[in-house]
Design a protein around this nucleic acid. Structure first.
Length: 417
DNA sequence: GGCCAGGTAACCCTGAACCT
DNA sequence: AGGTTCAGGGTTACCTGGCC
C-alpha cells in the first residue's frame, strides 16, 4: 500500500515541546494531515515509554496501533472524511550525541528506530549508563555517533540509525558548527550500516544530490514535530506493506521508497547564512567574502545549509537535468495548509479563521496532504477558488521566496501580496 | 468587546565565548 | 584559571496595542 510516514516526532516529555503532544492528539493530527505511519518519538523517556506500553498494542510486524478505546477518542472530533484512516506507530527516538572528535566538539542528532519493546529495553539499559533518561525525551549522551550506532545495531534485527536533519548548523552530521564533511568521518568502521539521511527543512533532495558522495544514501524527510499541528509538515512516501521490516528494506534499498514531501528549502530556518540578532541575511558567496564575520557586529555568522552544500558539492547547481541517481525517489515541495490559508485570509497560520477554514476543507475534501498534493485544481476550486489558485501555483514552484537564516524561518509566498 | 499580531520571558541544560 | 554570560532547541503564556 501507499502511505505517508513521519518518523521524527517528539512527545510532551522532550524539551521545548508542547504539552499537548500525547498519543491522542498526535494520532488525531496524523489523520488530519494524512500520515499513516508515525514515529513514537522519545521511547527512552520512562513516562512516555510507560504510556506507549499501555496505550499501544501490536499490529503488523514491528508496528503498533492505539488500543480501541483510545483510538476512538482520537477520532471523535474529526470529520468523517479522515476519522477512519488507519494510523500505525513505529518505535523511534532522537538522540543527541555530544562528544569530542578530531579536536572539535561534536553535537549530532540521530534518529533510532527499533522493531519492538524488547529491543527498546535493551537500548534504554545501555543509554541509562551514560545519561539520565528521565530528564528529556531527546536524551543527550556522552557517546560518539559511532558508539551510539554500535549500541543500536546490538539491539537486534531491524534496529537502525538515521542521522537527523543532516545539514543543520547546530546538530547536523554535515552541519557547519560541529558536523563532519562525510558520513564516513563520523561513523568510521561502522559507516556501512548507515543507509539513509534525513534532509531537514532547509534542504531538499535536489540540493543533496549535488554531492555525489551522498548518492549511496536514501533521502528521507520528516516533521521533527514539537507539537501536534506540525505533524507531517515533511514526510516520506512509501509503497510497501505496512510492516516495519518492509519499510526498513525500502529505506535500505530504495525499492518501495516513492519519494518525499518537502518544504521549499528556502522556508527552513537555516537555508542561507546570517546573524539573527543583527538582522543580517547573506548568500554563501557574501559570507565567504566577509570571512564568516557579521558585517554589523563582527561576530561569527551562522553558516547555513546552502553554504555547506556548496562546500561539499561536486556538481553544479544550475544543471537542468535530473540529478537523481538511478532509482532514487522523487519529491515535491509544499507549504503547509495553515500557512497557505493564512496568506489567503491575511492572518497568521494559528488564527481561528485559519483553523475554521482548514476544518471546513478537510471535512469537504479529505486530509491536508491530499488537498496540497493530490486533488485536481478544479476540485479545490469547488470549495475555494483562491485555494485552488495558490495550490496550483505552489505545485509548479511559482512561489515568492525569502530564505530563512540563523534560526529565522523563511517565507514562501503563495497568495496575497 | 472580541479578535488578532507581535513582542518577550520562561521552560532546562550545555558548551562556547567572553570577561576579570 | 576561573567565573559569567549568552545562545540554541520551539512552544506556551502573558502582555500591549491595533483594528473592526
Amino acid at each position: 500500500m501507499r502511505f505517508h510516514a513521519d518518523l521524527h516526532m517528539h512527545s510532551r516529555y522532550a524539551y521545548a515541546c508542547s504539552r499537548h503532544s500525547d498519543l491522542v492528539n498526535l494520532t488525531r493530527s496524523a489523520r488530519r494531515k494524512g500520515v499513516t505511519l508515525m514515529g513514537t518519538g522519545d521511547f527512552t523517556h520512562p513516562a512516555w515509554l510507560e504510556q506507549l506500553r499501555t496505550s499501544l498494542e501490536p499490529a503488523e510486524p514491528g508496528l503498533f496501533r492505539l488500543r480501541d478505546e483510545i483510538d476512538r477518542e482520537a477520532s471523535a472530533p474529526l470529520p468523517a472524511s479522515v476519522a477512519e484512516a488507519p494510523v500505525r506507530y513505529l518505535l523511534s527516538v532522537e538522540v543527541s550525541a555530544v562528544y569530542r572528535q578530531g579536536g572539535r566538539s561534536r553535537k549530532i542528532h540521530h534518529l533510532v528506530h527499533l522493531a519492538g519493546f524488547d529491543q527498546v529495553e535493551r537500548f534504554n539499559r545501555e543509554l541509562a549508563k551514560v545519561a539520565d533518561l528521565s530528564v528529556d525525551g531527546r536524551p543527550t549522551v556522552g557517546l560518539s555517533s559511532r558508539d551510539l550506532l554500535e549500541i543500536t545495531l546490538a539491539c537486534g534485527p531491524g534496529a537502525c540509525l538515521v542521522p537527523a536533519h543532516a545539514w543543520t548548523p547546530w546538530f547536523g552530521i554535515l552541519g557547519s558548527k560541529s558536523g563532519f564533511d562525510s558520513v564516513e568521518e563520523c561513523f568510521g568502521d561502522l559507516s556501512e550500516h548507515i543507509f539513509a539521511l534525513e534532509t531537514g527543512l532547509s534542504s531538499d533532495p535536489a540540493m543533496n544530490r549535488r554531492v555525489s558522495a551522498l548518492d549511496r544514501y536514501r533521502l528521507v524527510s520528516y516533521s521533527d514535530a514539537h507539537s501536534p499541528p506540525i505533524v507531517g509538515r515533511e514526510s516520506t512516501l512509501f509503497e510497501t506493506d505496512l510492516d516495519y521490516f518492509a519499510v526498513l528494506e525500502a529505506m535500505r534499498t530504495g525499492k518501495g521508497l516513492e519519494g518525499t514531501v518537502e518544504f521549499f528549502p528556502e522556508h527552513g530556518k537555516y537555508h542561507v547564512d546570517g546573524h539573527r540578532a543583527c538582522g543580517v541575511r547573506l548568500e554563501p558567496e557574501e559570507t565567504r567574502r566577509l570571512g564568516g564575520r557579521c558585517p554589523v557586529c563582527g561576530r561569527k555568522l551562522t553558516v547555513g545549509v546552502l553554504s555547506r552544500v556548496e562546500d561539499l558539492a561536486d556538481r553544479p547547481s544550475d544543471q537542468p537535468t535530473d540529478r537523481r541517481p538511478r532509482g532514487a525517489a522523487g519529491f515535491v515541495n509544499l507549504v503547509p495548509l495553515p500557512e497557505v490559508l493564512g496568506q489567503i485570509l491575511g492572518v497568521g497560520p494559528r488564527s481561528k479563521k485559519v483553523a475554521m477554514e482548514a476544518d471546513r476543507l478537510v471535512a469537504a475534501l479529505g486530509a491536508e496532504l491530499v488537498i496540497l498534493r493530490d486533488l485536481p485544481g478544479e476540485v479545490l476550486a469547488g470549495q475555494s477558488p483562491e485555494l485552488a489558485e495558490a495550490v496550483v501555483r505552489m505545485r509548479r514552484g511559482q512561489v515568492g521566496r525569502e530564505p530563512g537564516f540563523d534560526g529565522e524561518f523563511g517565507v514562501i509566498r503563495v497568495a496575497g501580496d
